[in-house]
Simulated scan of single mutants.
Amino acid sequence: MRVPFIKMHGLGNDFVVLDARGADLPPVSPALAASLADRRTGIGCDQLLVLEPSARADLFMHIFNADGSEAGACGNASRAIALMEGGALRIETAGGIIAAHPADAGIAVEMGRPRFDWDAIPLAYPMDTLAMPVAWGELASPAAVNVGNPHVVFFVPDQQHIALETLGPEIESDPLFPDGVNVNLATLLSRNAISLRVWERGAGLTRACGTGACATAVAAMRRGLVDQEVEVRLPGGALQIAWDGGERLLMTGPAAESFRGTFAWGDYA
């Protein structure tokens, strides 16, 4: 059984897309997702996206991380799917419904209301999520935000001198985070610009993370560090984030198709 796929990316955060809406595909297992994501023996990606019909939106997007675990939302993936579909659409995810539409700077995605309650992150026990009284080595007092995925955001003077590849997996798997967590290192550049590196839960270091950019911008706005519209600069490029302090959290940026192909399902199942 040969299955078609589309390889896409948003600022280098790359995806393999399987469209199961009109195809009778077998269920995607964590093992198959991890095999397809392998960059040496598979197609290679940060996330595998499986599109299915939805009764609540235009489609449902399952998001599998490179290790086979599932994510609740992905802003970069939402932009990619909106580009693939060619217009405005509503995407249902495990983290809620995301609306996307074409914009001058690429694709704009409405990410929904950020959540800050400790049990909505979730954390293992109650604490202040704007300045958490915890530390891992030189990283201390992060903010926690859930924007479909759980994030902690550390504001540091110089992110490049911090070993995120070491601290990222340690924080991701800390018992404080029952569902794991994405780890963001942010350096303020001005009132409307932030530099960001992200360790993604289940994927590791990635060139861009849309929900991470949103979580970081929201945390900085809540602390009064930046204005309501900010550019978040990631290794793969920049995203524009705007938040009105309520329901409207808007992320705008580019997406692109890389190539198309097919694979034999039995080689990876």
Rank of each mutant, 00 (worst) to 15 (best):
R79T: 07
F155E: 03
A80Q: 02
W199N: 01
I241H: 12
V181T: 14
L250A: 05
G204T: 04
L225E: 03
E52D: 10
V183C: 04
V3D: 00
G266R: 15
N184E: 13
T187Q: 11
C74I: 04
I91T: 13
C45H: 03
G224L: 08
R39A: 09
I63T: 09
A269D: 15
A131G: 08
T93P: 08
A219T: 05
A80T: 02
V3W: 00
I43T: 09
P142F: 14
A94V: 02
A219H: 08
L18T: 03
L11W: 07
T252F: 05
L51E: 02
I81H: 08
L59F: 13
R2K: 14
P122K: 07
R21H: 01
R201Y: 12
P254V: 08
F60W: 12
E170T: 15
A124Y: 05
G261I: 06
R21Q: 06
N76F: 13
R207D: 13
D267S: 10
F116I: 11
L25K: 08
F5H: 01
P169N: 14
P175T: 09
I97R: 01
L188N: 02
G12L: 04
L234S: 01
I63Q: 08
V28N: 00
L185D: 00
H151V: 11
D19G: 10
V152Q: 04
D174M: 02
P122M: 04
F5A: 01
T206W: 08
D58C: 14
R39K: 12
G86M: 06
V17W: 01
G224P: 02
Q240Y: 06
V17A: 02
N65S: 12
D244V: 09
A23D: 08
H151W: 13
R233H: 13
E229L: 13
A213H: 03
I171K: 05
D58L: 09
A82W: 03
S141D: 15
C74A: 08
L25C: 10
E247S: 12
H62D: 15
R79A: 03
T262L: 06
D244Q: 07
S78V: 06
F64R: 05
L49V: 07
V28I: 15
A103Y: 06
P169H: 14
I171A: 10
T41V: 04
F116S: 04
T187V: 07
P133H: 04
S141T: 15
S69T: 12
H161W: 11
G95E: 01
M61P: 12
E170W: 12
R201Q: 08
M8Q: 05
I121D: 01
V147I: 15
R260Q: 13
V153I: 14
A186N: 01
V134G: 03
R115G: 02
D24F: 05
